[in-house]
Design a protein around this nucleic acid. Structure first.
Lengths: 249, 249
DNA sequence: CGAAAATTTGACGACTCTCAAGTCGAGTGG
DNA sequence: CCACTCGACTTGAGAGTCGTCAAATTTTCG
């Protein structure tokens, strides 16, 4: 996280890249970034921000709330990643034109809209900021890669531990975590969609995490008494989050 | 694929985005792109093009051969994606600075190097080409997403069918497929690393595909008699490859 | 030809799925 | 205030996929 009042000074985009490359943004760039948002809106639970195949003339900054990036197969929904405040959730759609996935709210969310014309202008006359935008979309790819590895390697309870550890860290980067856990509107079903297991199996896994004292997940609130233990159990190595400046390994 | 002699006219970068957004590149942009490559090199089997955590002042265009994008966990190697000629394999490293993954050759490969200074120049004075570069990196993210879904949904033999179907299509886009299959240096162990299964289980799965007549995979050569059947068995829906212009759904 | 690498086979156990119930909790209407 | 309802969560039993260990066989290449 940058200066503690960063979010007061930039209430719309102050969390963008916080704890990551935000420190590379000049004051002028932060001001410009904040001005890119032409309007905000509050969306309700399960609102679909953008749907697969759709074209759009704007991208969406997540200001408050949680979102899932989803794909749909014949039988079920797959959440391929999740988003926390400060994420420029569908910036992809600027470069990709049509999206291959959906962005769905989990719980109510507040968003800001950035017209693509404004992004074109940034690309034309601020290559440095353009590069940061590019960076922020590649972050998603890095998260996907780590998740592919974890899917291949971890059992369901460990996958869940990994997910909780990641959410916690990411919320922390944008100043929204508690010392002993975090708040989230995610239900067990959402966790199931995220870790590719059935809700039934996730329930057993969550129960196991609770019983073994690793994490107490319940709707609205996650409480963890021993963070190291959670991260170790989920084999969580935060390098892939590109937090701060230290090198990755 | 674009015009059949595209690769003769641009022997270094003629396959870049072939079958996808290459048609949006003007003649001048194709010429400029070709000139970005300052040198080429032939790399041997298992050569590591770039390693996790490394910084680099150039990016690599894969001209001929196959590569895997890998992550390493305690026990094993995970291949999170693979690359075919025409892929700008570590362009990520331009925007990301330090990479979260490795790029490894499978079989010998010929590559071209593009200095990052040259990419900075492109970003400064050709926003359209810059956007195509951005697009090409987001393609990887889209492929990762599809793969996350397939990992969660398919059994090992079906995963393999999906992988074969994808490789085939991608080789076809760059004009390197046969009517009845394709050639590849991939071994069963590589397939295992790609689909997150053990080599032993992959072996049984490959045997099943062979026995059921869906695909005959052997080192160096994959032969498929009924492509529709392969793609249906692997639940392969090519929308995520962003081929051609038709909308995604 | 011989060694190393790649592929193949068999048996057993762990993880996760499916189907089928059953419980808990918040909000609603009487 | 209580009964009702709907969604979320929980529990149990049986079956399939896949991992592990241990070996044999085939292919590749010096």
């Amino acid at each position: 996280m940058n200066s503690p009042n960063e979010f007061e000074r930039f209430p719309l985009t102050g969390r963008f890249l916080a704890g990551r490359a935000r420190s590379e943004m000049s004051e002028a760039e932060r001001v410009r970034m904040e001005a890119l948002v032409t309007g905000t809106e509050v969306l309700e639970h399960e609102h679909r921000v953008i749907a697969r195949g759709q074209r759009s003339d704007h991208s969406t900054m997540l200001i408050e709330g949680f979102m899932l990036r989803t794909l749909e197969s014949e039988n079920r929904r797959h959440a391929v990643s999740f988003h926390v405040p400060g994420d420029f959730v569908d910036l992809h759609c600027f470069a990709l034109q049509r999206l291959d996935h959906n962005i769905d709210c989990v719980g109510p969310a507040r968003v800001g809209y950035v017209p693509h014309e404004a992004i074109v202008e940034v690309m034309r006359d601020d290559p440095k900021l353009a590069r940061l935008f590019w960076f922020s979309t590649l972050l998603d790819a890095a998260l996907h890669r780590e998740w592919i590895m974890k899917l291949e390697q971890l059992t369901a309870p460990r996958r869940i531990a990994h997910i909780l550890a990641e959410i916690w860290r990411r919320l922390e980067m944008v100043g929204m975590a508690h010392p002993d856990g975090f708040e989230t509107p995610l239900r067990q079903i959402d966790i199931a969609d995220m870790c590719g297991a059935t809700a039934i199996h996730v329930n057993r896994a969550v129960a196991e995490l609770r019983k073994s004292g690793i994490a107490d997940f319940r709707r609205g609130r996650v409480v963890v008494s021993d963070r190291d233990r959670l991260e170790e159990y989920g084999d969580f190595n935060p390098g892939y989050l590109y937090a701060g400046e230290p090198p990755i390994p």
